[in-house]
């Protein structure tokens, strides 16, 4: 932590933190009805932590919105309810009523229909229903090439479409938060953070994260080379498929049937970071490449949300 009498230049994490807090304040100040999208994952945890800091000693002047699919890990629901209660922040949970009625699930409807209807359509419904005009999201520019040029303040049409040509130039720390009737803005306070920054900050600030990020013995089945955790009895097992206990963890979190686990001994945060860093370097030395589907799920999550 920064010493209270420190006059040295800020470290990179301090600069990122200060920038994100300024972004959150600026958006909240100019929005009519802001909301923070909360996906229960590590990026959401960091974003919520920053929002708590931004308005301290007051609570954030906006609610959290969890666009739920009913297919998240049980531990995510427990964590979500516990953390929001502890922090005393308002949580809105939205489940697409159409999906509830039709029983949309990844097994019978496929992952893309499942994701589109629960998450993409669900998000639009929730924003329209509550009249939210500014929504914070936890996306980062380092996640994939196409996001490298995304704005911090990204304008959406009344139908929530992203129009490349309509995006505004962003200079200095000056953000144009004005919008015409019906338009809304997605705000990404973590734009300039990398995955490593997020983990380092979680470690430094001791931010609670869902225990699924840490390795533990969990019941899994292997499908198409991907380890899927059998989180509840809604998961149909193939003939002859028997869940086995393996020490696994998750790099990203989503709907449990669509989220691949990796085998790991990293049962502490620091070990997770170590494993992440070493994996990258050792893979460059030509190890067998592990195409874990977690990475692709992270992308799906982004496509779905944003």
């Amino acid at each position: 932590m920064r010493s209270v009498t420190d006059k040295r230049p800020l470290t990179h994490l301090q600069r990122l933190e200060a920038e994100s807090i300024a972004i959150i304040r600026e958006a909240a100040a100019e929005a009519e009805r802001p909301v923070m999208l909360y996906s229960v994952g590590k990026d959401s945890a960091v974003m919520l932590h920053l929002a708590m800091k931004a308005f301290y000693p007051a609570p954030p002047p906006f609610p959290l919105l969890h666009v739920d699919t009913t297919w998240k890990f049980q531990e995510m629901y427990e964590f979500r309810d516990r953390i929001t209660a502890e922090l005393g922040v308002e949580l809105i949970v939205h489940q697409n009523p159409e999906c509830v009625e039709l029983g949309i699930n990844p097994f019978t409807h496929g992952s893309s229909v499942h994701t589109d209807m629960w998450k993409t359509q669900g998000l639009k419904q929730a924003l329209d229903k509550h009249g939210f005009d500014v929504a914070f999201g936890g996306a980062r520019r380092d996640e994939e090439k196409s996001r490298a040029k995304e704005r911090v303040f990204s304008i959406r049409s009344a139908s929530h479409q992203w129009d490349a040509k309509a995006q505004r130039p962003e200079l200095w720390r000056l953000y144009n938060v004005r919008k015409s009737r019906g338009e809304s803005i997605r705000v990404f306070p973590l734009s300039n953070w990398t995955e490593l920054d997020v983990w380092q900050y979680i470690h430094q600030q001791q931010i609670p994260v869902v225990p699924l990020y840490l390795a533990a013995e969990r019941p899994v089945v292997e499908r198409n080379g991907t380890l899927i955790m059998v989180d509840d009895d809604r998961m149909p097992l193939e003939p002859g498929e028997v869940p086995v206990m393996k020490k696994v963890r998750f790099r990203t979190l989503g709907c449990y049937p669509l989220t691949g686990a990796i085998e790991s001994d990293a049962d502490e945060l620091t070990l997770v970071i170590q494993e992440m860093l070493l994996t990258t370097t050792s893979e460059r030395q030509g190890r067998v490449i592990d195409h874990d589907s977690a990475a692709s799920m992270e992308k799906k999550k982004q496509e779905g949300y944003f």
Partner: peptide, 18 residues
């Protein structure tokens, strides 16, 4: 100088404070 991490004795350019 109020922050969620406790009051500061000094804040420098770049910091977000209250």
């Amino acid at each position: 100088i109020v922050t969620a991490d406790g009051d500061l004795d000094v804040a420098v350019a770049g910091q977000s404070v209250t």
